[in-house]
């Protein structure tokens, strides 16, 4: 299948009063048609900022995309004018946000929020937009959609709101859906439902998905490819199979060890990654993970390793990666 999104050497910085925050430091990746890519990492490692950057959604913050390209079906999103990218957002690229409690406007009815986009992007009449919105709500599993569409979001539970968010993001049948930790704010049971829902919708609409999460556990049977981010760098990327089978980067290993296991070794103690992610204002020249890494050597503190092919389709940015575990 063809490449839908190709991000090349994306760099985003925030110019704050306290200094320059190097949020995204040259990440490159591709998303193919129909692919599901998971982007994994701790809070504040540049996952969301990377996505907001390519949609030019950092406007109004101190964030600036300093370099890079983001080719969406051959068009560089970063070079589009305000008007041009607005036509793409919501129509070709849908986005679902982390917190359904705050991502829907509390003073507008669901109807209003859903139909607005349809009228704008597809040029349909209000009546058609309403019909379509109701069908979409049914599709995402909202009962009595034709009644509830007139309601306000505060009358909905978190899971229901996230369904509404998904319905809104899917309204114009986007080719790419960016889901920014869409299940983080939800109960585990609802989490599973939402993930199943997205998987089914993906098959139905045939879109590509970029799924941002901090939970490696939910990635396993959901995504085809995973990229692990740390301090604004991609430190490991692979297809799901080889990532779990031959985890190479100490950070990825750390993430896996801090997950509770569900199999034979369930008595195993959880091993947290010591320390906290580095201050992105004061990144040194070395590997950003070195201060927390058990295997850090002299070289790690001095030089930041680039992504290198470990095996076909499995890249890792670590000086010690080739040496086995």
């Amino acid at each position: 299948m063809g490449t839908m999104l190709e991000v090349k050497d994306l760099r985003t910085r925030f110019h704050t009063r306290e200094g320059v925050v190097r949020a995204v430091n040259g990440i490159s990746y591709t998303v193919d048609e129909g692919e599901t890519l998971a982007v994994v990492g701790e809070s504040g490692c540049g996952k969301s900022v990377g996505m907001l950057s390519i949609l030019q959604l950092l406007q109004g913050t101190t964030g600036r995309v300093e370099a890079g390209e983001a080719l969406f079906r051959g068009v560089d999103l970063l070079k589009l004018s305000d008007t041009e990218i607005r036509k793409l957002r919501g129509r070709d690229i849908g986005m679902v946000f982390q917190d359904p409690m705050t991502s829907l406007n509390p003073v507008l009815s669901i109807k209003r929020q859903m139909t607005e986009g349809l009228v704008k992007h597809l040029g349909v009449s209000r009546r058609e937009a309403l019909d379509r919105a109701i069908r979409l709500l049914r599709l995402v599993g909202i009962p009595k959609a034709e009644e509830l569409i007139g309601e306000y979001t505060f009358q909905f539970s978190g899971g229901m709101r996230q369904r509404v968010m998904i319905a809104m993001a899917l309204a114009c049948e986007p080719r790419l859906l960016i889901a920014d930790e869409p299940t983080t704010a939800l109960d585990v049971t609802i989490q599973a439902q939402i993930m199943n829902l997205v998987r089914e919708l993906k098959d139905q609409f045939g879109m590509a998905i970029v799924w941002i999460t901090h939970d490696l556990g939910i990635v396993a049977n959901f995504a085809q490819n995973v990229q692990v981010m740390y301090a604004g760098y991609i430190v490991e990327k692979a297809d799901v199979g080889s990532l779990f089978a031959r985890t190479a980067h100490p950070y990825t290993i750390g993430l896996l060890n801090s997950l509770p296991a569900n199999g034979a070794d369930r008595r195993r103690r959880l091993i947290p990654i010591k320390g906290a992610p580095p201050n992105l204002r004061a990144l040194g020249g070395g590997c950003p993970f070195a201060p927390r890494c058990g295997r850090a050597a002299e070289r790690c503190r001095a030089e930041n390793p680039a992504l290198a092919e470990l095996e076909r389709g499995h890249q890792v940015a670590c000086w010690n990666a080739g040496e086995g575990l």
């Binding site: 907001l52 959604l57 008007t83 607005r86 919501g90 129509r91 946000f97 705050t102 992007h121």
Partner: peptide, 14 residues
């Protein structure tokens, strides 16, 4: 600063 404002922009509104 609310997410729904970013969400509205992500839906393509000016």
């Amino acid at each position: 600063e609310n997410e729904y404002v970013v969400a509205a922009r992500a839906l393509g509104f000016g």
